[in-house]
């Protein structure tokens, strides 16, 4: 196991509930109902159970429905049907209580770009009800762990993509959520920062909290996740422990076998390449 991320004190003290942290039943969503082409089904009745304390990965090809599913699970997108329970609380009938226990890192980490890194974390903490002093203290610790201390007083507008991603993770963690949702958390993040984030997530899950993240990086999912779900065309094609899903193969190979190659006959591209005219 990776070494725990250091520098964080006074959080993860809340007792975690045993059992399923994320329960999804019959989740459905279509888009473009009023368009001429008719509605397009993005999520087609998925069921999912993620145990408390899991570090779970949600993988799938582009357009499979990962982001749509995560958006519905976090209350950011209204589903057409189905039920989502977080720690037994229904996200859509009891949103106040359910959302209080989650942290979210969207795919595009677009933060308040006229705040500094320290300010944006403090703002996130205070919005979640932390006293200002506590929010500042936690922001300082998180910025330290995320290697952003030197840039804490710079405007987020001047941050690189990776720095924004790390700041967004800090915003999602500052109120010590029970369940953390991340959409492509390592996209645009350099290898060193990626390792910091990996260790932070592992430590977070080890403490009994739950993490569900989407990713295209199979190596990452295989390395850190104890639970994997593969989604394709809005349906779950495999879910279970990482070992169960990969069934003796690499996760990359298992994924390709389950989803199937997308490419058609490459011979039609005979004109492509320097040897062609």
């Amino acid at each position: 196991m990776s070494a725990p991320a250091s520098g964080l004190t006074g959080w993860n003290e809340r007792p975690r509930t045993a059992g399923s942290a994320i329960t999804v039943r019959g989740l459905r969503k279509s888009f473009g109902g009023d368009s001429a082409a008719g509605p397009k089904t993005a999520v087609d009745g998925i069921d999912l159970d993620i145990a408390a304390g899991s570090l779970a990965g949600l993988v799938g090809p582009n357009g499979a429905g990962k982001t749509t599913s995560l958006s519905m699970m976090t209350g950011l997108l209204r589903p057409d049907g189905g039920q989502i329970l977080l720690g037994g609380l229904d996200v859509w009938t009891d949103p106040v209580a359910a959302k209080a226990m989650i942290g979210v890192v969207p795919a595009e980490a677009r933060l308040f770009d006229r705040l500094s890194g320290a300010e944006v974390l403090e703002y996130s903490g205070r919005l979640h009800g932390l006293p200002a002093a506590e929010a500042r203290s936690r922001a300082t610790q998180l910025l330290d762990v995320l290697d952003l201390t030197a840039d804490a007083k710079r405007l987020v507008a001047d941050y690189s993509t990776g720095m924004r991603k790390k700041a967004a993770l800090g915003c999602a963690l500052i109120h010590n959520p029970s369940v953390l949702f991340l959409d492509e958390p390592l996209e645009g993040v350099d290898p060193i920062s990626a390792d910091v984030i990996r260790r932070l997530l592992t430590r977070f899950a080890d403490s009994g909290s739950t993490v569900l993240f989407s990713s295209h990086v199979m190596e990452l999912v295989e390395q850190v996740c104890d639970h994997v779900t593969i989604i394709d065309r809005g349906k779950i094609v495999a879910t279970g422990t990482t070992d169960e899903v990969r069934a003796g193969k690499t996760l990359q190979q298992a994924f390709i076998d389950l989803v199937g190659p997308r490419a058609t006959d490459e011979e039609v591209l005979s004109w492509l390449g320097s040897s062609s005219s």
């Binding site: 705040l115 500094s116 320290a118 300010e119 403090e122 703002y123 205070r126 200002a132 500042r136 840039d151 804490a152 007083k153 710079r154 405007l155 507008a157 001047d158």
Partner: peptide, 9 residues
């Protein structure tokens, strides 16, 4: 880069 003074809200 633009630095802000104080650093707290």
């Amino acid at each position: 880069s633009s630095r802000v003074r104080g650093g707290a809200l």
